[in-house]
Design a protein around this nucleic acid. Structure first.
Length: 872
RNA sequence: GCGGACGUGGCGAAACCGGUAGACGCACGAGACUUAAAAUCUUGCGGCCGCAAGGCUGUGCGGGUUCGAGUCCCGCCGUCCGCACCA
């Protein structure tokens, strides 16, 4: 026997190190075997639907997924522990261009490529230990999913929510396809690099504008959405209130309409009008083109600059005087010139504006260029109306009306109403001169894509009958299995066997629609499908949809703030019209998480180097990087979003293999607030890994201790219940970084108590609470701890502990004492002491007396439980 | 240009309704244990002065309100994000 070590305090022998590699798969199997994450619709507990944005099956998961799904899983596990019937499903946003690119580059079938990726990524997600109901898994490229989407397309068509019309689109002449605006970079196709053309194509549209007002108004009710996202959607929908005014054309030439309609939000400034400007595509411009020399080429020039998005920023305001004159609506004797101008858009308002140079910068630039002058009609309160002039900066603020006849001295708002009232009452050729209008910036949603790997639009084109809906009984219109990308463009167009079908109405030879739907359609209703994904003959079950929706907590990236989240809101409304849903808003709570960012590294040649190849030294606080293989010095660059091109990526598989899923999850949830970016660092991961070991060690020690009653008992109990109450509060608000801090604090308290001696039952209670607090974040570790503590069942099924609030109130409290706002002393008073008592105890305090230096305070401010401030 | 968010130690951050600024973690320093390393433990850590007790100062900058301001108000500076010829 060796002599006892007197230098170190007596402690039980440390347990074996926690081995995540061994425990994690074991517990994943245990959960799977117990089937505890499969959710039933017939369950009497209150429902809670938590959903993370489903991934595109690109091949492998990345750290952004880990962060996103770790957050969702914390919520799901927490709510389950709180007694909710939790729906937490997962699926695949599986249609899209990368599959076609892979098909072209690697000669694989897009379907095979996609399903192989899904298999890989499903395995990766399962290795994270997420509490997902895999029995509800869906893939949008599965005919069992998209046949319902086709059905809804036909329903929308029947209800007038789908139209077909020609529209200008971005056309890539090399790839033979339409590009979304986001896919056009500096006027070129993002993949081919070809100059994008504007083409008129016949397209299918979802009439999202039918719901513009409601989509706008309902944003105010989405209180659990980030303010930022609501503002972005409001700006995107772009509601404005104005007046549509008719300007009568003086002596109209043949073929020219008798008046020009103008939409304006500033009818109050009408007396400052100097010109009218119409779009290059305006019917009047087209009619005049042949009779006005130079106009045709000007129109063409406008169209060219219109295509190059980047050029718009710097484009000069250009106009062409048509020679046409219109009469001022408030004074028929006042004639205004009509220009064709390159800054007027045909698809907003009426395609014509009146120019008021004094109060609109763009109009002023234009007027100054063409010598049209300006007349200020709104005078700021700080200026003298007699001397107020505008030279090269327009004034768009508030003030008083001047130079405006019957409007003089009114505010612009009053003038707006006065003009609107007068012109609405005035009738010309049977109709009022003006009418109030609400305008939206939002355009209808063009869903036609000239691609193979998407949901086929269920329409058959017949020469005699026109576009005919595919009968519901014939759905799905399945994509052909065999596909060739040898010919540029959409392979469906060349697949005659697939394309040529008889007309469902007359039986004559006809052709299938070869366009497929925008993949944003697929993701617009998947959350509704999750409520009853087993249904074969209908997209949704009304009972299930109304039971589960809205999603209580939706979590995803801010990049979907507008498109996906707006389309989904539209879709719910359209599904309400067609009877597939009883609710209009899909997501009650929305959380947009930050990105995962990492340092970048470059070698001497300027090539990016991946973190796995870097060795960092920190001598005297100076961080230096070297290549692991060559030892060559490496430059440490900016911290940026993880991206393949900059090679600053860390593969979740590597982290899970070397540290375990719990470590990766814990690190993703600690440090940064969830809405902010988190910096991935090797030090941070190691810190997380150390904490995993620490929890295991502490819980094991607590399980093994035989300590009797101790002075530390009350303190530890208090710490445990305090941590419990705090974590509860913060997890409800998704403040995971704060939860982490509370858990660390409890771990410190438990550590100290075990070291100083603590009663065994108290230690085990605290360890049990620690285990359950950790469980939503590190579920595998929690199971292992739960078992070590000898508790029944699975930690994943354990009820959330109840915080004993009586432990949280202190018997006595220590208040800071300030002298003229500066802290000078602390005073300890009984919890129930009233103001008078606190004041008495404060003034009796030795340190306070010393600080007062014999002075008597003029005023004593006591904020119970907070502070005492003495004013001398 | 329009709209929004943010600015706190070496770093990530915390601070509720205006009430002890820097909880918690990372990094770093000193020490213990070790043949050594890792792990673990003790301890220090905004700045300045001081052996210490303690004092002064400090939340981007300048003002203001208040007994009291990181927090509220006014004016700047800076960073990031979104939209952008929207009439």
């Amino acid at each position: 026997m060796t002599s006892p070590d007197t230098s170190a305090p007596a402690r039980p022998v440390a347990p074996e190190r926690y081995n995540a590699k061994e425990t994690e798969p074991r517990w994943q199997q245990a959960w799977e075997a117990a089937g505890i994450y499969a959710t039933k619709n017939d369950d009497t507990r209150p429902k809670y639907y938590v959903l993370e944005m489903f991934p595109y099956p690109s091949g492998r998961i990345h750290m952004g997924h880990v962060r996103n799904y770790a957050m969702g899983d914390v919520v799901a596990r927490y709510k389950r522990a709180r007694g909710f019937n939790v729906l937490h499903p997962m699926g695949w946003d599986a249609f899209g261009l990368p599959a076609e690119n892979a098909a072209m580059e690697r000669k694989v079938n897009p379907r095979d490529w996609t399903y192989a990726n899904i298999a890989t990524m499903r395995g990766q997600l399962q290795s994270m230990g997420l509490s997902l109901d895999w029995s509800r898994e869906i893939a949008t490229c599965d005919p069992d999913y998209y046949k319902h989407q086709q059905r809804m397309f036909l329903d929308f068509l029947e209800k007038g929510l789908v139209t077909r019309r020609t529209a200008k689109v971005n056309w890539d002449p090399v790839d033979h396809t339409v590009l979304a605006n986001e896919q056009v970079i500096d006027g070129r196709g993002w993949r081919s690099g070809a100059l994008v053309e504007q083409r008129e194509l016949t397209q299918w549209f979802f009439k999202i504008t039918d719901f513009a007002q409601d989509l706008y108004d309902a944003l105010d009710g989405l209180e659990r959405w980030p303010e930022k996202v609501r503002v972005m959607q409001k700006n995107w929908i772009g509601r404005s209130e104005g007046l549509e005014v008719r300007f009568v054309v003086e002596a109209p030439p043949p073929g020219i309409a008798p008046d020009v309609k103008v939409y304006t939000t500033r009818p109050d400034t009408l007396f400052g009008a100097k010109f009218l400007a119409i779009a290059a595509d305006h019917p009047i411009a087209a009619s005049l083109a042949s009779s006005r020399p130079g106009l045709q080429s000007f129109i063409e020039e406008c169209r060219r600059t219109g295509t190059a998005q980047a050029a718009i920023d710097t484009a000069e305001k250009l106009g062409f005087d048509t020679g046409l004159k219109v009469r001022h609506p408030l004074d028929p004797s006042w004639l205004l010139p009509v220009y064709v101008a390159n800054f007027v858009l045909m698809d907003y308002g009426t395609g014509a504006v009146f120019g008021c140079p004094a109060h609109d910068q763009r109009d002023l630039d234009f007027a100054n260029k063409y010598g049209l002058g300006n007349t200020p009609v709104v005078c700021p309160e700080t200026e003298d109306a007699a001397t107020f002039v505008i030279t090269d900066t327009a004034y768009d603020g508030d003030g008083r009306m001047i130079n405006s006849r019957f409007l003089d001295d009114m505010t612009p708002a009053e003038a707006f109403d006065a003009v609107a009232n007068r012109l609405e009452a005035e009738v010309l050729a049977g109709t009022p001169v003006a009418s109030r209008k609400v305008q939206f910036r939002l355009r209808d949603w063009g869903v036609s894509r000239q691609r193979y790997w998407g949901c086929p639009i269920p329409i058959i084109h017949c020469d005699a009958c026109g576009p005919v809906a595919v009968p519901v009984a014939d759905l799905p219109v399945k994509l052909p299995d065999e596909v060739s990308f040898d010919v540029p463009g959409n392979p469906l167009e060349c697949d005659h066997a697939w394309r040529n079908v008889p007309c469902p109405t007359c039986g004559a030879p006809a052709r299938r629609e070869t366009d497929t739907m925008d993949t944003f359609v697929d993701s617009s209703w998947y959350y509704a499908r999750f409520t009853a994904p087993w249904l074969q003959d209908a997209p949704t079950d009304r009972k299930a949809v109304d039971q589960w929706l809205a999603v209580d907590q939706y979590i995803g990236g801010i990049e979907h703030a507008i498109l996906h989240l707006l389309y989904a809101r539209f879709f719910m409304r359209a599904m309400q019209v067609t009877g597939w849903s009883g609710v209009s808003e899909p997501f009650d709570g929305l959380f947009t998480q930050g990105m995962v960012v990492h340092e970048t590294y470059k070698d001497a040649a300027g090539a990016w180097v991946q973190p796995a190849d870097i060795r960092i030294t920190a001598e005297a606080g100076e961080r230096q990087a070297f290549h692991v293989k060559t030892d060559a010095p490496i430059t440490i660059g900016a911290i940026e979003k993880m991206s393949k091109s900059k090679k600053n990526v860390v593969d979740p598989d590597d982290i899970i293999a070397s540290y375990g899923a719990d470590t990766a999850r814990w690190f993703m949830l600690s440090d940064s607030p969830p809405e902010r970016d988190v910096i991935w660092t090797e030090d941070g991961v190691q810190g997380a890994a150390r904490f995993v070991q620490r929890v295991w060690r502490l819980v094991s020690l607590a399980a093994a201790t035989t300590g009797g009653a101790s002075a530390n008992d009350a303190g530890l109990r208090k710490a445990a219940h305090k941590a419990l109450a705090s974590v509860e509060e913060d997890v409800e608000r998704l403040r995971f970084n704060r939860c982490v801090a509370h858990i660390y604090t409890l771990a410190n308290a438990l550590d100290e108590a075990l070291r100083g001696g603590v009663e065994a039952g108290v230690a085990r209670e605290a360890a049990g609470i620690l285990t359950l607090l950790v469980a939503p974040m590190m579920p595998h570790l929690a199971e292992e701890c739960w078992q070590a503590l000898g508790r029944e069942g699975l930690a994943a099924q354990a009820a959330w502990p109840v915080a004993d609030r009586s432990l949280l109130v202190e018997d006595s409290i220590t208040l800071p004492v300030q002298l003229n706002g500066k802290k000078r002393a602390d005073v300890t008073v009984p919890r129930e002491a009233d103001k008078v008592e606190v004041e008495r105890l404060t003034l009796a305090d030795e340190a306070v007396q010393k600080a007062l230096e014999g002075r008597a305070p003029k005023k004593v401010i006591v904020v119970p439980g907070r502070i005492v401030n003495l004013v001398v």
